[in-house]
Amino acid sequence: MDRLLFLLATGLARGAIFALFALALVLIWRAARVVNFAQGAMAVVAVYVAFAVTGLTGSYWIGLASALVAGGLMGLVVERGVMRFASHASPLSGVIIAIGVVMVLQSALGIAFGSNTRPMEAPFSESPIVIGGVPVLSPYDLFVLILAVGLMGVLALLFTRTSLGLQLRASAFAPEVSRLLGVRVTRMVTAGWVLASAVGALAALLLVPTELGLNPHSADMLFVSAFTVAVVGGLDSPPGALIGGLAVGVLISLVTGYLGATVAPIAVLVLLVAVLLVRPGGLFATTEARTA
């Protein structure tokens, strides 16, 4: 029972990171109808920036801020530089361009920093707090949960309560109509990429201290898990990303705890296949399918 509680709590904290990263995938999918396969590599570039800045300044928080900025800039550069020119005739062209971006970024990181893993310190203790003799979750897990949930709340407000959010949603749902109403849709697509890439960078930054450390491939597994989350939740659904993320986090935590770490990826893939068989649009997909 104690163990179950611990696994659930750490699973939720891990799941919150998956949810954030999946949310970034969802935001770009909605804005540009592209699954951003480069998001892991782009996020890792931002984490390297944070690593360097923290090393220079000694402050985790300045590093965190610079990861957000670097992530946003990556989104800007990748969208304006290459993804904008992807043909919309075939969904595959965006994917192939994204994979090209991954190769370029990972090689560049390897050349610049080497491929060895650098340990990254968490800003808070990672040993669990013990409540009534039961280890629950670490201060860092708590920090991750609060930050992730808080950020998602802010994003929800941005999208539902502001003019920018309304224009972002309208541009995603109905680009032509939005243009006829004077909305600068291409700018909104760029804004979606910037926002999503900053969120993805933060997710990767939060994850790395709980793993072995930082190397050019640090976010590869994060991408796979978050992609599963996005598909399970429905690529169009931000609430799906949140709930799917927490569910996959808990699933991985429980399977790892009871059956071993090697079984966890299999469990994730089983979940993915099961959802695709039962509800191909994702659990939270809206009923009207959009083909346009």
């Binding site: 309304l166 949603r169 309208a170 749902f173 109905a174 909305v183 809206t286």
Partner: peptide
């Protein structure tokens, strides 16, 4: 051409 996913209010504000 009403944006199906937005409410009446949101369509008008847009």
């Amino acid at each position: 051409s009403v944006v199906a996913e937005l409410t009446v209010d949101e369509n008008l504000r847009l």
